[in-house]
């Protein structure tokens, strides 16, 4: 009887632990807003819009400095 009670208590404990684990994982799995480049999160993701520099939705931040241009190989057709 006592053994039965112990087994039951252990089973209950494991079950509740699993519940807690699930709750913790669910909380951890919910995305939190982070600063990322536009390509990493969909633009309409709640809180997923890039909040770093250059983000129009965060006008308090000055836009980041633009890097030097990346050259495209090709034959120009400018007026010359």
């Amino acid at each position: 009887m006592r053994l039965k009670s112990l087994i039951t208590a252990a089973a209950l404990g494991v079950g509740l632990t699993g519940t807690g684990l699930v709750a913790a994982e669910a909380a951890a799995a919910t995305p939190t807003p982070v600063t990322t480049s536009p390509g990493h999160l969909p633009p309409n993701h709640p809180g997923g819009k890039p909040s770093g520099p250059g983000d129009p939705s965060n006008p308090g931040q000055p836009p980041a400095a633009a890097p030097p241009g990346k050259a495209i190989p090709g034959t120009p057709n400018y007026t010359g």
Partner: peptide, 27 residues
């Protein structure tokens, strides 16, 4: 402890979303 961790994470998430919400609507 595990439940507490989950509660802390949830609280942090709520605070983070609130902060994000106040800034994401800048325009």
């Amino acid at each position: 402890i595990k439940v507490h961790t989950g509660a802390v994470l949830a609280a942090g998430l709520i605070a983070g979303l609130a902060g994000c919400g106040s800034s994401s609507g800048g325009d």
